[in-house]
Design a protein around this nucleic acid. Structure first.
Lengths: 389, 389
DNA sequence: CTGAAAGCGCTTACAG
DNA sequence: CTGAAAGCGCTTACAG
C-alpha cells in the first residue's frame, strides 16, 4: 500500500498507474490475448496479421508498457530467476577470515551473473540466518516461489538441507565444499583428492615431515575433513607414520594463531614442508621464517591453499593453489539453467581443479599441474565420504 | 512447463502438486478468505473464532501448506525483496582490480543481508550488463516488479540512471561513489572532503610535494574526480602550486603500473608523501622503496586508500584508510527499508567516514581521525559537484 | 486469424 | 464472526 502510494505521488507520469496489458489492448483495439501472443512470440497455428501486430507494437510504445513479471511468473510458473543460498554472514570469526569469504562470494556471484545474464535470468540471494545454537535456517525458509533453480553452498556438514530441498522440488546445484551427495548435481573441487596428490608430490620430493595447517574458529567444515583425509591417505600409502603434531586441530581464536604456527616451526625434527590451509594466515609463516633465519625453499617449502594478489610480492613469494571461483560460479549457473530448461536429466558432477601458481616458496614443477588435474581417483573420494558420514 | 514436470516427477510427495490455500480451506471446512485472514493476522473488526482458527492451523500443518509468495506479492503489490544493482562484472581490468571489487561487493551484500534478514526481506541482484560501446544496461532492464526498493551503485558518471529510476517509482538508495544527487537518498563516503582533509593533514606535517596516485584501466569514476578535486583544493588553500606530475592520469594497462609508480619516485625533488589510491597497487610502492633504499616514514610517508589484511605485516607496515563496506551496506539497507515502509519521507544522506588505521608508513596521529570525521564542509562538496557536472 | 473464458494463488472490501 | 465475489496482471487452451 505504502509503495503504491509512493509511486502515485512521485511517478514520472504524475500519478498515473502503470499501463497494463488491458490498456494496451484497449488502445490497439484488440483483446489482451492478442497482445500477449504478440509480445511472447508464441508459435501459433495461424500467424498474427501484420496490421494488428503493428497497432499493438505501437500501443506498447506509446504507453511505455512493460509486462508485469510477477503476474507473468505466476501464470507461467517460471520466474527467470536463479537463487543462491550462501553463508556470507559468518557471525563468528575475525575480520581477516570474513574478508576471504567475501572475496570468494563476490567472485562466485560474478561468475554466476556472467552466465545468467546471457541466458536471461537474474539472481536472488537468500538470507542465511544463523538461528539459536548456531543453526542456520531450514529449507522451509528458502522459499522457492521466486526462483526457478537454486545454487546451494553450505560448508557445514551439520546443516545439510540438500535432501529436503530436492524433496521440495527445487532444481538444485550444490557448490563448493558441500556434503557429498552421490545422487546430485554439484560443482566443486575434489578436496580429498587434491590434498592427496599434493602430499604425494611433496613426499616424492623427499619430504617426510609435512605439516598441514587447517584450523578454524568453529567446527571444521567438511572441506577440511576431506583435505585432512587426503593428506593422511598419502602418508599411509608412503608408509610414513602420521604425527598428530604436524596437523593441529585447535580452534582459531582460543590459542593465538601465531602461537599455533610457531609450534610447528619448533617441532623437532622440524617439518621440511608446510601446507597452509588458508591464505589469510600465510603471513604468520613468513614471520616465523624470518625470525628463525630460514630460507625457502632451501630449508622449508611452503604452499598456500588459496591465492592472494599480494603473494607474488612477499618475500619469499608464496606458491599457492588458486581456486577459480568465477569459473566455478559459471559452471554452477550453467548447470542449474540446463536443469531448469530440461537440457540435462542425469546428475552431473563438475570437478574444478585448483590452479597451481608456482613461486619461490615451494617448487613442485610443472608436472604437478597435470597430476592435480588428471590423477583423479573417484573411488578414493567415495571411500572417504563413507568414512566421514 | 519443464520445471513443473520436474517437480511432479521428483517431489517428495510422489507427484502431487503443492497445497494451495483452497486445499487448506477445504480441509478445514472454511473458505479461503478465512484461511488468508488467519495466516496474515490481520486486525479485524471481529476476531476469528478460536475453534476455526485451530482447525485451519491444523490443516495447514497437515498439508505442509506455505502460501505462494508470487501470488501474494501480486495481490499485495509488495514482494519483501530488495534489489541491488551493482557493477560486479567489470569486464576490462586485470584480476587484481576485480578482486578488490569482489571483496567490497561481498562485504556490502553481507551488510545488506544482515539488515534485510532481520526485517524479513530478501535480496535480488540485477545483472549489470555492459552493452556495446561499454554502456551498461538502461533502467528499463532493471525491472522493479520483483522488488520493493533498490540499492543502486553505479560508479561511472556517464551511466547515470538515477533520474529515470526515480521516475519509474522505485524507492531508491544510491550507494558508494555515485553521482551526486542533491535530491536523493544516499550512503557514501565524502571522497572530496576526505581527500581534502587528508591532504591538509599531510601539508600540516610539512609536506609540500605530495603525490596522489589514482589511475584506472578505463575512464576514472566520479569518485576519483572528487578525490582529485579534494586534493587540489587543499593545495590551493595552502597556496602550494599544483604539479601535474604528482598526480598521474594515465590509464592502467597502457603503461605498466610499475613504471608509473617509478616515475613518481624519480621526480626531483622527490615527493615526501604519497597517497596510494588503490590497495592492489601498494606493493609497487614498497618495491620502489626497497630498490631505492628509502625508509618510511623518515624519507617518505605512504598512505593507502583501502585497507588489506596483509598491510600490517608488510615492511613497512602500511597505514591505510579503510572503508567500512559492511556498515555501508547496513545503512543502505536500513534506509531503503525505511523508505519502503514509509518511515522516512525526506531525502537522507548518510556519509560514512573512512576508518584510519595508522601503521609505520605514515603517521598523522590520532587527531587526524577526528579531523576526518568531523571537519565536514558540505559546501565544498556541493561546489565540486557543480564544477564537475 | 482473434476473442471470451478460465486459471495461476493469493487478498480484501463488501455483505450478511 | 465468516462467506461470495472481484481483483492483482498476466497466459493459454478452446471456440469460432
Amino acid at each position: 500500500m505504502q509503495m503504491v502510494l509512493w509511486i502515485m505521488t512521485t511517478g514520472s507520469d504524475g500519478g498515473h498507474r502503470r499501463a497494463t496489458i488491458r490498456d494496451v489492448a484497449r488502445r490497439a483495439g484488440v483483446t489482451p490475448s492478442t497482445v500477449s501472443r504478440i509480445l511472447n512470440n508464441r508459435e501459433l497455428a495461424f500467424p498474427i496479421a501484420e496490421h494488428t501486430r503493428k497497432r499493438v507494437i505501437e500501443a506498447v510504445k506509446e504507453l511505455g508498457y512493460r509486462p508485469n513479471r510477477l503476474a507473468r511468473s505466476l501464470a507461467m510458473s517460471k520466474t527467470h530467476v536463479i537463487g543462491m543460498y550462501f553463508p556470507i554472514t559468518e557471525p563468528s570469526g575475525q575480520l581477516e577470515h570474513r574478508e576471504v569469504t567475501w572475496l570468494s562470494f563476490g567472485a562466485m556471484v560474478s561468475g554466476v551473473q556472467h552466465i545468467t545474464q546471457m541466458r536471461g535470468y537474474e539472481v536472488h540471494i537468500f538470507n542465511r540466518v544463523e538461528h539459536d545454537y548456531g543453526h542456520p535456517n531450514a529449507p522451509k525458509d528458502i522459499c522457492p516461489d521466486f526462483i526457478d533453480g537454486l545454487i546451494y553452498v553450505e560448508p557445514n556438514q551439520h546443516y545439510d538441507f540438500y535432501t529436503e530441498l530436492v524433496a521440495a522440488g527445487v532444481p538444485l546445484v550444490t557448490m563448493g565444499p558441500s556434503p557429498v551427495h552421490p545422487a546430485g548435481f554439484s560443482v566443486s573441487p575434489d578436496d580429498c583428492q587434491d590434498f592427496y596428490v599434493l602430499t604425494k608430490a611433496l613426499i616424492a620430493k623427499g619430504h617426510h615431515r609435512i605439516a598441514c595447517f587447517i584450523c578454524h574458529p568453529n567446527d571444521p567444515p567438511l572441506e577440511t575433513l576431506l583435505r585432512r583425509q587426503g593428506y593422511r591417505t598419502a602418508l599411509d600409502e608412503a608408509e610414513i607414520p602420521y604425527d598428530p603434531a604436524l596437523m593441529p586441530t585447535e580452534r582459531l581464536g582460543q590459542t593465538p594463531t601465531k602461537a599455533l604456527v610457531e609450534r610447528l616451526f619448533d617441532l623437532w625434527p622440524r617439518p621440511t614442508a608446510m601446507i597452509i590451509g588458508r591464505p589469510e594466515v600465510a603471513h604468520y609463516f613468513i614471520e616465523c621464517l624470518h625470525e628463525r633465519g630460514l630460507v625457502c625453499p632451501r630449508d622449508l617449502e611452503l604452499i598456500v591453499i588459496g591465492d592472494d594478489p599480494i603473494f607474488p610480492y612477499l618475500s619469499p613469494s608464496l606458491t599457492a593453489l588458486r581456486y577459480p571461483y568465477v569459473r566455478a560460479g559459471e559452471e554452477a549457473a550453467r548447470l542449474v539453467l540446463d536443469i531448469v530448461e530440461g537440457k540435462v536429466k542425469d546428475p552431473v558432477k563438475v570437478v574444478i581443479p585448483w590452479q597451481y601458481n608456482e613461486r619461490e616458496s615451494c617448487q613442485l614443477g610443472e608436472s604437478f599441474i597435470k597430476y592435480l588435474v588428471q590423477d583423479s581417483t573417484p573411488e578414493l573420494r567415495k571411500e572417504v565420504a563413507i568414512k566421514i558420514s
